[in-house]
Simulated scan of single mutants.
Amino acid sequence: MHYAQYAGRAPQFFTIGHPFPLEGGAELPSVILAYHTYGTLNEAGDNVLWVCHALTASSDVADWWPGTVVEGGLLDPSKYFVICVNKLGSPYGSTSPITVNPATGESWYLDFPQVTIRDMVRAYQELRTALGITRIKMIIGGSTGGCQAMEWAIMEPELFENVSLTVTLPKITPWIVADSEAQRMAIEADPTFFERRMDGGGQGLAAARAMSMLIYRNSVAFNRTQHDPDSEKLEGYRAASYQRYQGEKLRRRFNAHCYYRLLQSLDSHDVGRGRGGVAAALRRITARTIVTAVDSDIMFTEPEVRGMAALLGADYHVIHSDYGHDGFLIETPEITRILREYL
């Protein structure tokens, strides 16, 4: 079956009907998680591939990672029960700034409390129990999805057989925090962001996305793909229109309030918090771990990812890509080749 036959399905929903305390001290009165599944859970509840999505993706992994959810592919629904959950704070169905606050009957917007990566994983744990999943053959996470996978492998080490961490780190660097803050400043510069409306902050979000493209890619990618062969030009540059296109594309499909809070979630990621530091936390992971870097990534750099792999004693792989951090989504055949060796 071609992957397109799996993509575009409506999500399922799971409700946590009790108050859900957050790491920062606030509390959500209840939580809804949107999720997609492909394939059938076996009687033992252990033929599971759990995918954690990145910053602005959804739970429809067949849509945003084309070519993977296909018979004979990496996420083969004929063999595995594949699941991806939309993380807290995202606008694709789970509880977020644009869902309704039961206490007011209106959307949360900026009243939505800070949610950490650890909070997201605690919500996944409740869904996992409700579905009857007893063991996860492989959890797969790239970028911020890798942050989630790492947290969960530390929280419940016995649950996982394999942990795949791609272009991610155990603690967010000042470089990434600086990028996030610059993006938040762009959103805050749009006065509509502070209005209680669904499209509030839209232009600020577009500007933030254009900025983020510079860290998601790199100069090699831009200089190769956005080159203007017309040396007589005085305006209308290809790279300029590309930035505006990327900003507008995200503005149309995402939400500024959600993006703002998700950047804060990323900034707070530190597996060593309350666990005696990063090295001590990573020692809790007992599953076979596969760490993959992209050689041109300037967000989660190859030397930094290699250092994490050494702390984990992980199998380490480096993918070549001209597309920087986004290479983890673009170089699908190479990632598939690596991970299928462990399945």
Rank of each mutant, 00 (worst) to 15 (best):
T225K: 15
R244S: 09
R224P: 05
R251V: 04
N218M: 11
R238K: 15
L234M: 11
H227K: 09
H257P: 05
E235H: 11
A256N: 01
K233W: 07
L234P: 08
A239M: 12
N218D: 06
L234T: 15
R238W: 01
G247V: 00
G247N: 06
E235G: 14
N223F: 14
D230M: 15
K249I: 01
G236W: 04
R253C: 07
N255H: 07
F254C: 04
R252K: 13
D230I: 09
R244G: 01
K233I: 01
R217D: 02
Q243S: 12
F254V: 03
L234F: 13
G247M: 07
R238Y: 11
H227I: 10
G236E: 01
R252N: 04
D228L: 13
A256C: 01
R252W: 10
R238L: 11
L250Q: 03
Q246C: 05
S219E: 06
Q226R: 08
A221M: 13
A221R: 07
C258V: 10
P229I: 12
A240L: 14
G236L: 09
P229L: 08
S219R: 10
Y237M: 03
N223I: 14
H227F: 15
R238C: 05
S241A: 15
D228A: 06
R252E: 04
R253Y: 00
N223E: 11
S241H: 12
N218S: 02
P229T: 14
G247Q: 07
Q246A: 02
A221L: 00
S231P: 12
P229R: 15
L250W: 09
V220F: 10
Q246K: 08
E232Y: 14
D230R: 14
F254H: 05
A221E: 10
Q246D: 00
C258A: 07
H257I: 03
S231K: 06
R251E: 00
Q243K: 09
K233C: 09
R252I: 03
D228V: 09
K249Y: 02
H227L: 13
P229Y: 14
R244Y: 12
L250C: 04
Y245K: 03
R224H: 14
Y237W: 09
Q243G: 12
A221W: 12
N255D: 06
A221C: 08
V220Y: 08
R244I: 04
F222N: 06
P229G: 12
Y245D: 04
A240F: 13
R244W: 04
L234D: 14
G236Q: 02
R252T: 01
K249L: 00
D228K: 03
S219Q: 08
N255V: 05
P229H: 12
Q226A: 03
